[in-house]
Design a protein around this nucleic acid. Structure first.
Lengths: 149, 149
DNA sequence: CTTCTTGCAAACACTTTGCACGATG
DNA sequence: CATCGTGCAAAGTGTTTGCAAGAAG
């Protein structure tokens, strides 16, 4: 087994609902369904994917949006912006801040998770040179995947 | 005077309109006004900024959108996505592909142009490891600027 | 005079919000 | 049973498009 530093062993559903309860959030049908769905899906999911992925789509679109906000705020999912207008979300393991990047095929939209990150010293350099504090970055790669070439 | 490798000597208006004419595009009032406005503005501009910046806003919003598409397609401006939902544009000098990044203050939205870029060897490494071709990246930095700290 | 552009209004995609009903703790 | 969450419908952004009138070449 190669690298894959993080994720890909999704947390169990009981653990996830426990995280909700511990922060005084109610464990409802839609929330369980969304978590269960994301547990079984590798890679970032769009709101539409999530909504349609819910069996018999038994949850309003607005509720999906509200749930994703809640989960993001609680640090249970991470939001990504892959450049098309539309957020993506990935489920996070407890304690994981989810900072990583993606390589997106511009033809078929296939997404690969990337382990490389922007070099830390370079980022520090950028921060100090410009007098900024608490500097982070958003970074995504785009190209043409093997199958689409 | 420090580094500032590119831009910041904006092309003259005649040169810009000539670029339009050379590609059989008409030199109209709105287009001239937009180019003239961008010539005098450093850093990325939002559509709203551009629209409002036009004197007596003598140009429809839809025309601004259409013009920015045209200019982008012609390689005269570059589109940036700074993470809030709303495109930004920078005027390009002839031949400049405009690839660079920004450091954005998360408090006041002030934008600094950054000369550092994602290391090329690392990007090539990412490309070959995943079998992708024509790989590029989008990269923006966020932090708190000196004045806002 | 032909073709490209514009203004206007309508349409779109994505996301947020008000409110009364319903479910959870 | 108090509070929080949901569905529904309406409203908000940012952006695109159809169409007839107008301007550039």
């Amino acid at each position: 087994m190669k690298g894959h530093s993080h994720s890909h062993e999704s947390p169990g559903l009981p653990e996830l609902t426990e995280r909700l309860r511990s922060k005084m959030r109610k464990v409802t049908g839609p929330r369980q369904a969304i978590l269960e769905l994301m547990r079984h899906h590798a890679g970032p999911m769009s709101i539409k994917q999530i909504h349609q992925g819910l069996t018999t789509s038994d949850c309003d679109l607005a509720t999906v949006y509200r749930s994703m906000h809640l989960l993001e705020e609680m640090g249970m999912v991470k939001r990504f912006d892959l450049g098309d207008g539309g957020a993506r979300f990935e489920l996070l393991a407890e304690g994981d801040d989810g900072h990583h990047h993606h390589l997106v095929c511009t033809r078929c939209s296939d997404v690969v998770e990337i382990e490389q990150c922007f070099p830390n010293e370079l980022e520090k350099d950028i921060a100090t040179r410009n007098g900024f504090k608490q500097v982070t970055h958003k970074l995504e790669f785009f190209g043409i995947c093997p199958r689409c070439q």
